[in-house]
Simulated assay, not measured.
Amino acid sequence: MTTQENSTHGSYVTKGESFDRDMSYIDDRITRDGRDGWPVEAGRYRLIAARACPWANRTLISRRLLGLEDALSVGMPGPTHDKRSWTFDLDEGGVDPVLGYERLQQAYFARFPDYPRGITVPAVVDVPSRAVVTNDFQQITLDFTAEWTEHHRDGAPDLYPVAQRAEIDALSRWMLHRVNNGVYKVGFAGSQQVYEDEFRALWAALDELEERLGRSRYLLGPAITEADVRLFPTLIRFDPVYHGHFKANRQPLASMPNLWNYTKDLFTTPGFGDTVDFEQIKRHYYVVHEDINPTQVVPLGPDLSPLLEGHDRDRFETATWGPEGTAPQPPLAAEVVDPAHTPLHVSGR
């Protein structure tokens, strides 16, 4: 995702050092008033979001929950990338059918010919100019919620309620550094001491979330919010990737009752699990991270079928979609995850 992750294919660890994520992104925003020069317009923009990437996964979830499919098209690169860019190798001829590009890099260079940082997903591209608008993953989903309201579906949930925004923002900042990026700090640690420090910090944060989720169905109460959209992509990748590949292996997530049942709950909630492609997720991490998996062997396990078993979260007060919201419709036919990449088929059973 970051410059460090994209600058050299397979090189992510600096011996003796901590992992430092470059948090400098193109901070233009697409807004109702177009104050940055990018007004919200149905059909004008294309979201580029690889299913493999957790940061991109949250944009796919938000787009589904809010019903933005007709207003905002999506392009999905394949699960791997080289030192130059994510590529559209899943599309016919290896070319994005809307942008006409083989590489996401081309959209960045169309706007910034000497763009110096990593070519990251998610990114939103202006279709008429075929140039990137923003790759600020922290802001993109907030703007989907607050700026694209004219194009929300009937019954779309309010993922960023005004009364809870300060709490959501504070929790999101904490999760970013301690959990979402915390797993990378563990996996890309450059020394034993750095690894042990980051390992303990990550698990202290997960223990806090385990306790928190013993009090309510979702992170901030009876309804899903932006905070849940941000946490889920990390949790769903934990046992298949972070536990083993990143050595975050104090215990599997499946052994933590509240976090595991919360993950199962969201996985079976429309808009969450139907965006997850386990085959692409595992291939991305185990193939691209050559310095920590030089053989590029992709494991068959773990068995993910328990994700489809019942959960206990309905013991809490529940208003999943808010007071007037409803569940989203099924995904568009062209965006359905390959059934062979779902829990019953990816564990080598």
Rank of each mutant, 00 (worst) to 15 (best):
R215W: 11
S216N: 13
D314R: 13
A107S: 15
E324D: 11
S7F: 14
V162R: 14
N249T: 10
F267M: 10
R29K: 11
N6P: 00
F19G: 01
G118T: 07
V133W: 01
A52Y: 11
V276I: 15
R217N: 01
G37V: 09
W55H: 09
R32S: 15
R313P: 04
I236Q: 05
W203V: 06
A170Y: 03
E226V: 03
F19A: 05
P306L: 12
V95M: 01
N261E: 15
L259I: 05
A170W: 00
P54F: 00
R44D: 11
D27P: 04
T268P: 02
P54D: 00
P339K: 01
H9V: 14
R315F: 00
W38E: 01
Y160T: 15
G214L: 04
D197M: 12
V124P: 01
A131F: 02
K185P: 03
E198M: 10
I30E: 01
V124E: 04
I140V: 10
P233H: 08
W86L: 00
H9R: 10
K282N: 10
S255Q: 08
H9E: 04
G214A: 09
T2W: 00
D136P: 07
F267D: 06
Y184I: 14
G67P: 09
M175L: 13
Q280G: 15
E150W: 06
G10I: 04
K15N: 12
D197L: 13
P270L: 12
E211R: 11
R44Q: 11
L235Q: 11
V298E: 14
L231G: 04
A340I: 04
A340P: 03
E150K: 15
V162H: 15
A163V: 12
G78S: 11
F272P: 00
T87L: 12
V298M: 13
M1R: 06
L90Y: 07
N258F: 07
E335A: 13
Y218A: 11
R230I: 03
Q138S: 12
D143R: 02
R315A: 09
I140F: 11
Y108M: 05
R46M: 02
L253I: 03
T134A: 06
H311Y: 02
A107G: 06
P331K: 10
G155V: 05
R200M: 14
P306S: 02
R21S: 08
D70Y: 05
